[in-house]
Amino acid sequence: CHSECLGNCSQPDDPTKCVACRNFYLDGRCVETCPPPYYHFQDWRCVNFSFCQDLHHKCKNSRRQGCHQYVIHNNKCIPECPSGYTMNSSNLLCTPCLGPCPKVCHLLEGEKTIDSVTSAQELRGCTVINGSLIINIRGGNNLAAELEANLGLIEEISGYLKIRRSYALVSLSFFRKLRLIRGETLEIGNYSFYALDNQNLRQLWDWSKHNLTITQGKLFFHYNPKLCLSEIHKMEEVSGTKGRQERNDIALKTNGDQASCENELLKFSYIRTSFDKILLRWEPYWPPDFRDLLGFMLFYKEAPYQNVTEFDGQDACGSNSWTVVDIDPPLRSNDPKSQNHPGWLMRGLKPWTQYAIFVKTLVTFSDERRTYGAKSDIIYVQTDATNPSVPLDPISVSNSSSQIILKWKPPSDPNGNITHYLVFWERQAEDSELFELDYCLKGLKLPSRTWSPPFESEDSQKHNQSEYEDSAGECCSCPKTDSQILKELEESSFRKTFEDYLHNVVFVPRKT
């Protein structure tokens, strides 16, 4: 048989008469490798580009789960590009990614509803959504962080984005990388972005840091009482949809009607710091009717980097990364020049730590249904340095008659930039024990000054392991946590139920 035959053949030295091919099969003959313009397919066939392209389009058009959109890589027609490569849609070739590779997620039936953290986790790592997304989240724990972890990498949506009755959302900033909504599939009414009845939605994105392009379709905003109209108009300008909307697409009466839409800028007039305090004062603000001013709200939190936005980490279910302080308005003076500047002394802060701070007014709604208010920009203030805590785990070892090696770990709280350490030492008198000992005694162990690591005695271990207080009263049991108490109650309830079950099964009433 021919060298490319495997198993047997019907005619000697003829690659077209093989029972099976050793390498690849091409047009009725066995070959060692697939010549151009053919590609290896499933490690035994040679196919042309049209064959591989037909497989790709067949799966793409069917949208069946589990099928493969075949691509070409290293002269092979394979189910998908290997790690580190992405497909070129024009020629199906796998090309190296520039940075992290995109991950295209194809949605069944063309859309997916995100109504819980669990459903959001199914899209973790996706960068391109081939379909439409509907966000409908009523509640949950730590929602802002969970949504950002699972949806934060999405850069492109081919269909539309719909935010509907998501009472738990305060902001859409968890879509931190969303840059493009194509609108290839539109919501009824030709809408590519749809926001309806979101009672706590206050911000779409921080438009000073976020760009969003909507290729096709219109915007729809109705019944978002805490979303200011200025935020919607800003989205029109940034996304390129200005002029597409009709009169009733953006409701003037049901958007922002319960919001404090600040239209003035508060400026800080005085800032002073110490290692654990920050004193702030800002310019006074009074609405047209000074009785509408209820006070100020001061927001602050630790910020290692200057990239904080107002609604980071917030949701309507209680999660809030900001510390909020309510401040009463100052006494009002008739003389504008003698107006008191409101302020606040922030206490209990960490030394040498940068804080993000902003302040906003708290006002009631005027009778004319106009909203007044003022808010400052987010500023960054760093507390002063102070003395560091003591170095940890000092170790001293003498390696000769004239040297001592000293080692330690950095302090747990540096409280500033540590530039150097101060080492103090003092000579001590020799131990009298060394002169009084009889060095001729056998088995004498000389006193040693070398360091030995501390260890816990058996008594201390027994005390720590004991669940009861000892007789001397030195140790006591740790208080039980809520989960331990709940577990004990469940076990007790189970024992009672099981005992009742045994009584009912074992003891049967005697027939009379």
Score class of each variant (00 low, 15 high):
103 K>D: 05
103 K>G: 15
104 V>C: 03
106 H>E: 11
107 L>E: 05
108 L>R: 10
108 L>C: 03
108 L>E: 04
108 L>K: 10
109 E>H: 14
109 E>G: 15
110 G>K: 06
110 G>W: 08
110 G>L: 11
110 G>D: 09
112 K>H: 15
112 K>V: 07
113 T>C: 15
113 T>P: 09
114 I>M: 07
115 D>T: 06
115 D>Q: 05
115 D>C: 03
115 D>G: 00
116 S>N: 13
116 S>Y: 02
118 T>M: 05
120 A>L: 10
121 Q>V: 05
121 Q>P: 06
122 E>K: 02
123 L>R: 01
123 L>E: 02
124 R>H: 15
125 G>T: 06
126 C>H: 00
126 C>W: 00
126 C>E: 00
126 C>V: 01
127 T>A: 02
127 T>V: 03
127 T>R: 05
128 V>G: 11
128 V>I: 13
131 G>K: 01
132 S>N: 13
133 L>D: 00
134 I>S: 12
136 N>F: 10
136 N>M: 02
136 N>R: 07
137 I>K: 00
137 I>T: 12
138 R>H: 13
139 G>L: 12
140 G>H: 15
141 N>R: 07
143 L>S: 15
143 L>N: 14
144 A>C: 08
144 A>W: 01
144 A>I: 03
144 A>L: 12
145 A>G: 13
146 E>F: 07
146 E>H: 04
147 L>T: 03
148 E>I: 10
149 A>T: 10
150 N>F: 14
150 N>R: 08
151 L>N: 00
151 L>F: 09
151 L>Y: 01
153 L>S: 10
153 L>A: 13
154 I>E: 00
156 E>R: 03
157 I>E: 00
157 I>S: 00
157 I>M: 06
158 S>Y: 10
158 S>L: 14
159 G>V: 02
161 L>K: 00
162 K>W: 13
162 K>C: 03
162 K>P: 00
163 I>C: 09
163 I>R: 00
165 R>S: 15
166 S>N: 13
167 Y>S: 02
167 Y>T: 12
168 A>I: 04
168 A>R: 15
169 L>S: 12
169 L>N: 02
169 L>R: 00
170 V>M: 04
171 S>R: 07
172 L>A: 06
174 F>W: 06
174 F>Q: 01
174 F>M: 06
174 F>L: 10
175 F>S: 00
175 F>R: 00
176 R>T: 14
176 R>I: 05
176 R>C: 10
176 R>Q: 14
177 K>R: 10
177 K>T: 13
177 K>H: 04
177 K>F: 07
179 R>S: 06
179 R>I: 12
179 R>A: 11
179 R>Y: 11
180 L>Y: 08
181 I>H: 00
181 I>Q: 00
183 G>A: 05
183 G>Y: 02
185 T>R: 12
185 T>C: 01
186 L>M: 11
187 E>S: 11
187 E>W: 15
187 E>D: 15
187 E>L: 11
188 I>S: 06
188 I>N: 02
188 I>T: 14
189 G>Q: 02
190 N>C: 13
191 Y>D: 02
192 S>T: 01
193 F>R: 00
193 F>D: 01
193 F>Q: 00
193 F>I: 12
193 F>W: 04
195 A>S: 09
196 L>W: 12
197 D>S: 03
197 D>T: 13
197 D>L: 15
197 D>N: 15
198 N>H: 00
198 N>D: 01
200 N>S: 10
201 L>H: 00
202 R>Q: 04
204 L>M: 15
205 W>I: 01
206 D>I: 04
206 D>W: 02
208 S>N: 08
209 K>Y: 08
209 K>H: 15
211 N>K: 14
211 N>Q: 14
212 L>K: 01
212 L>E: 01
212 L>D: 01
213 T>S: 08
214 I>D: 01
214 I>A: 07
214 I>W: 05
215 T>C: 11
216 Q>F: 14
216 Q>E: 01
216 Q>N: 03
217 G>F: 01
219 L>T: 03
219 L>I: 14
221 F>G: 03
221 F>L: 07
225 P>E: 04
225 P>R: 02
226 K>Y: 06
227 L>E: 00
227 L>V: 11
228 C>G: 03
229 L>T: 06
229 L>G: 03
231 E>S: 14
232 I>A: 09
232 I>P: 03
233 H>G: 02
234 K>M: 01
234 K>A: 03
235 M>A: 09
237 E>P: 03
237 E>I: 12
238 V>W: 03
238 V>A: 07
238 V>F: 09
239 S>C: 14
239 S>E: 02
239 S>R: 12
241 T>R: 12
242 K>N: 12
244 R>Q: 12
244 R>Y: 08
247 R>A: 10
247 R>S: 10
247 R>T: 11
249 D>G: 12
250 I>S: 12
251 A>Y: 12
251 A>N: 15
252 L>W: 11
252 L>V: 13
253 K>Y: 11
254 T>H: 15
255 N>A: 06
255 N>Q: 10
256 G>L: 06
258 Q>L: 12
259 A>L: 13
260 S>Q: 05
262 E>L: 02
262 E>M: 04
263 N>M: 03
263 N>G: 14
263 N>Q: 05
264 E>W: 12
264 E>G: 05
264 E>V: 01
265 L>C: 06
266 L>R: 00
266 L>V: 03
266 L>D: 00
267 K>Q: 12
268 F>K: 00
268 F>R: 00
268 F>D: 00
268 F>M: 07
269 S>R: 06
269 S>T: 08
270 Y>S: 00
271 I>R: 02
271 I>M: 08
274 S>D: 14
274 S>K: 11
274 S>E: 11
276 D>G: 11
277 K>M: 08
277 K>P: 00
278 I>H: 00
278 I>N: 00
280 L>E: 00
280 L>M: 11
281 R>S: 03
281 R>C: 02
282 W>Y: 01
282 W>M: 02
282 W>L: 04
283 E>H: 08
283 E>T: 13
284 P>L: 14
285 Y>S: 05
285 Y>T: 03
286 W>T: 08
287 P>F: 04
287 P>A: 03
289 D>V: 05
289 D>T: 03
289 D>S: 05
290 F>T: 05
291 R>T: 14
291 R>V: 10
292 D>F: 09
292 D>Y: 07
293 L>H: 06
293 L>A: 09
293 L>N: 06
294 L>Q: 03
295 G>A: 15
295 G>M: 15
296 F>T: 00
298 L>H: 00
300 Y>Q: 15
300 Y>R: 07
303 A>E: 02
303 A>F: 15
303 A>V: 12
305 Y>F: 13
305 Y>E: 04
307 N>D: 04
307 N>W: 09
307 N>G: 04
311 F>A: 15
312 D>F: 10
314 Q>F: 07
315 D>E: 03
315 D>Q: 15
316 A>M: 07
317 C>N: 07
317 C>T: 04
318 G>S: 15
318 G>A: 02
319 S>F: 13
320 N>M: 07
320 N>K: 04
320 N>V: 02
321 S>V: 10
321 S>H: 11
322 W>I: 02
323 T>R: 04
323 T>S: 07
324 V>K: 01
325 V>G: 03
327 I>P: 01
327 I>G: 01
329 P>L: 04
330 P>F: 12
330 P>G: 05
331 L>I: 10
331 L>F: 06
333 S>Q: 14
333 S>A: 05
334 N>M: 09
334 N>H: 15
334 N>S: 11
338 S>C: 03
338 S>I: 03
338 S>Q: 07
338 S>N: 07
338 S>G: 09
339 Q>H: 10
340 N>A: 07
340 N>T: 13
340 N>E: 15
341 H>T: 14
342 P>L: 10
344 W>T: 04
344 W>C: 04
345 L>M: 07
345 L>H: 05
346 M>L: 11
347 R>C: 10
350 K>M: 12
350 K>D: 01
351 P>L: 03
351 P>C: 07
352 W>L: 03
352 W>D: 14
352 W>Y: 02
352 W>R: 02
353 T>R: 10
354 Q>S: 04
355 Y>A: 00
360 K>F: 02
361 T>N: 07
361 T>K: 02
362 L>Y: 12
362 L>A: 10
363 V>H: 12
363 V>A: 12
365 F>Q: 07
367 D>L: 11
368 E>R: 15
369 R>T: 12
369 R>A: 03
370 R>S: 06
371 T>G: 08
372 Y>V: 13
372 Y>A: 01
373 G>P: 04
373 G>C: 03
374 A>H: 07
374 A>P: 15
377 D>G: 05
378 I>N: 01
379 I>R: 07
380 Y>R: 07
380 Y>Q: 04
381 V>R: 15
381 V>M: 08
383 T>N: 00
385 A>H: 11
388 P>I: 01
388 P>H: 01
389 S>Q: 04
390 V>G: 03
390 V>M: 12
391 P>R: 02
392 L>N: 05
393 D>W: 15
396 S>M: 04
398 S>Q: 14
399 N>C: 11
399 N>L: 08
399 N>I: 10
401 S>V: 13
403 Q>V: 03
404 I>G: 00
406 L>V: 15
406 L>S: 03
407 K>T: 15
407 K>M: 15
407 K>R: 06
407 K>F: 03
408 W>K: 00
409 K>F: 11
410 P>H: 11
